[in-house]
Nucleic acid binder design. Structure first.
Lengths: 232, 232
DNA sequence: GCTCGTCAAGAGCAGTGCTCTCTTTTATTT
DNA sequence: AAATAAAAGAGAGCACTGCTCTTGACGAGC
């Protein structure tokens, strides 16, 4: 009884996975707007309406791809961090930066789906946020551990964060635990700086100007490290 | 002869402008992928094929909107800079930052078109780049003037840019004139940091975490100013 | 053995960008 | 003023999209 039911559910899970895989391949070549349910169905030898047995709408398929994307990026970041020495906080930060950029360059359309313009009419469901912060959690752990190891000695040039920032800092501390407001503020600047750079590079803003990008990126991220107070 | 010819060309120019205007309104409400030539034609009381007399393709209409967008943002940035004291370089930087963010918040879909995921299959023609650097030119002027006024005293924590950066720095100096490589590098970090923040805010990455955004943004941009070496 | 839920298939709806042809309007030339 | 050339609008049509609804087949549980 349950064995046959699982047999059915197993083929269902298998097909669901295959649809997502083909969709991901299409996403990689055509981009988000080029993702077509009918094309996926065609490639599977299915009729288009059959897809709807597995994904109630195109947006649901997109959601799956987004969650998978966040997880893939998060895993890449986790692996990069794990391959470094725990006490080498600067190395960990740089490893995270390069992991984000490398993954983005390898999966430009997926990156665009995660960090580019939101798909119009598409409202990200709550399921995505858990996966979305996976890389941020790694980043937060590095900052937090560096701070508590006394390895964060920021240059004394930045103004203190405004009082109005306290509330947001408390919320951020649910991810990056136990660091003072000013470190939260600096962490935010570095984090947005990382993704700002990657987005500029990927979305064509550097075209014709910044061409030798590997060393420029590395130096920019070292600059952020210096601003964070990480030792160089 | 020429007066009648201009009569025809005048109504043509008028219609072209009206199409672009309606398209911009649609873009503002529906987003880039929701921009439909047929809908524009419908709103104009035209038949869809007639639009093609004015814009050979949807991409051409998009190009027009993109150029207009860059110009609108560039003008906003220029005005913000012009409203400050020329010697107050920090104030000018902050004015530019807020102008970019304010414009982006007021025109989220247009900002997404300019700085978000590139539209798939769409190749930005050369016409766009002239308009695209308009805000960067203002920024570059501020940095350059601050440097030559001796107002740039960066904290001595950042590593010097790598030798491989020299070539790109030369290219950047065509926009930001006469500043040394390390200032170019810092300027790049701040510039990407600004747009990284705005993109995060606009594309939903701050949702549920950073809510009191005005003061947080202002502080973040002051931090970039400090890193640039601008006096606070 | 019969019923019932699951699934694939197909037709169809409303929409899209774009092209082609045909007709009407406008401007120029003879 | 009439004839000609150029430009623009109208409409049909192609191939495509997401999505819905109905029909028919198959396998599991009573």
């Amino acid at each position: 009884m349950s064995s046959s039911r699982t047999a059915r559910e197993r083929v269902r899970a298998e097909l669901t996975r295959e649809i997502a895989d083909i969709a991901r391949r299409q996403l990689a070549t055509e981009g988000a707007t080029g993702l077509s349910l009918r094309a996926v169905a065609r490639e599977m030898g299915m009729v288009s309406s059959a897809i709807y047995r597995y994904f109630p709408s195109r947006d649901d398929l997109l959601t799956t791809l987004i969650i998978d994307g966040y997880n893939a990026l998060g895993e890449a970041v986790e692996n990069a961090d794990a391959a470094t020495h725990r006490e080498d906080h600067t190395g960990r930060w740089l490893a995270v930066c390069h992991a984000v950029r490398d993954w983005a360059l390898a999966h430009p359309h997926e990156y665009a789906l995660l960090y580019g313009s939101p798909v119009p009419g598409y409202q990200a469901p709550q399921d995505t946020v858990a996966a979305a912060v996976r890389d941020t959690v790694v980043y937060g752990r590095i900052i937090s551990e560096a701070f508590h190891a006394g390895a964060l000695n920021p240059p004394d040039v930045a103004p203190p964060p405004p009082a109005a920032f306290a509330e947001d800092a408390t919320r951020v501390r649910e991810i990056i635990s136990d660091i003072p407001d000013d470190v939260v503020a600096r962490a935010l600047v570095a984090w947005t700086g990382l993704f700002g750079w990657v987005s500029f590079e990927l979305f064509g803003q550097f075209n014709g100007a910044i061409l030798n990008r590997d060393p420029a990126f590395d130096h920019a991220m070292r600059s952020h490290a210096a601003y964070l107070g990480l030792p160089l």
